[in-house]
């Protein structure tokens, strides 16, 4: 896809996110909007993946979402890229839906390989998958997205230490570095300090990316992939704006986990072009 096509797709994904969380008056729009460009690039351009979906993911790139609360962006992109019918997005967070509040395998939603939501666990799972690929002689790449506030979980650093020691170099971790979490900014709640320095000192190759600039996402993710296979895991510190694309949701943590009312929903949708057709 061209950058223009990807940006148009991301605009539709943002509309889906707003409409999903508005319809059930719950969910997490802020981080979902911030990551819309990244998810769109991953599923429509970067990853070699199969929407017919096999759990074991043999011979394809595999993606793991550790900060499961931004499920709306993942569901939208999975549906729009062919994993399940787009109208199913309307069942988000409803009873008997496959689109649980946080991603789960239990209901059999294609595209999801492990439950996430309780934070800090996804990177470990992604490492396990990367080790399996190595055992199987499968040269595809494993990706894992974590939040930034999520890095306050101790298990993350167990995983970070492990990946370096064991040279897990078929894995790219991406951190959604929007600087916000539920109770405020990272710096107010529990500062991440020198985040690049932390990863570097744990032996990872660190890259920086503007997660709300499609051209930069494509460029840096390509560089990250090219850096694999050199004995070091790679992390991309992705700067995003929580609430990106909806003016009143940007620059604050207020929309981390809150849905807009009817009026604010309309105000948001007025800022987001309908490009692929609403569900």
């Amino acid at each position: 896809m061209t950058i223009d096509q990807l940006e148009k797709t991301a605009s539709q994904v943002r509309r889906d996110i707003i409409r999903m969380v508005h319809a059930v008056s719950s969910g997490h729009p802020g981080g979902s909007l911030g990551c819309a460009d990244f998810f769109t690039a991953m599923y429509f351009e970067i990853m070699d993946h199969d929407p017919s979906f096999n759990m074991d993911g043999k011979n394809e790139d595999m993606f793991f979402l550790s900060n499961g609360h931004i499920s709306p962006v993942w569901y939208s992109v999975l549906a729009r890229s062919g994993y399940f019918p787009v109208p199913e997005l309307s069942t988000f967070r409803h009873l008997d839906s496959r689109l649980q509040g946080h991603p789960a395998t239990h209901e059999g939603l294609p595209g999801i390989r492990v439950a996430s939501g309780s934070l800090g666990q996804g990177l470990s799972v992604a490492i396990g998958v990367a080790l399996s690929k190595r055992l199987n002689g499968d040269d595809k790449t494993v990706y894992c997205l974590t939040g930034d506030g999520e890095l306050q979980e101790g298990q993350i650093w167990e995983a970070v230490m492990y990946a370096c020691h064991n040279k897990v170099d078929n894995l790219i971790a991406v951190v959604d570095w929007n600087g916000q979490q539920i109770d405020g900014s990272n710096d107010d709640v529990l500062t991440l300090g020198d985040l690049p320095g932390k990863w570097e000192s744990f032996g990872w190759q660190v890259m920086h990316m503007d997660g709300n600039n499609m051209a930069d996402v494509l460029k840096v993710m390509a560089e990250a992939k090219a850096a694999l296979g050199n004995g070091k895991p790679v992390v991309v510190l992705m700067k995003t704006e929580m609430g990106q694309g909806v003016d009143y949701m940007m620059g604050t943590h207020a929309w981390h986990g809150k849905a807009p009312n009817d009026e604010l929903k309309d105000k948001a949708l007025a800022q987001l072009e309908e490009t692929l057709g609403d569900y």
Partner: peptide, 18 residues
């Protein structure tokens, strides 16, 4: 290593891939 939480996660990943 002494990192049981990570061990359980890695095990889940290994199982995911068969």
């Amino acid at each position: 290593g002494i990192a049981e939480a990570n061990m359980m996660g890695i095990a889940a990943g290994l199982a995911t891939a068969g």
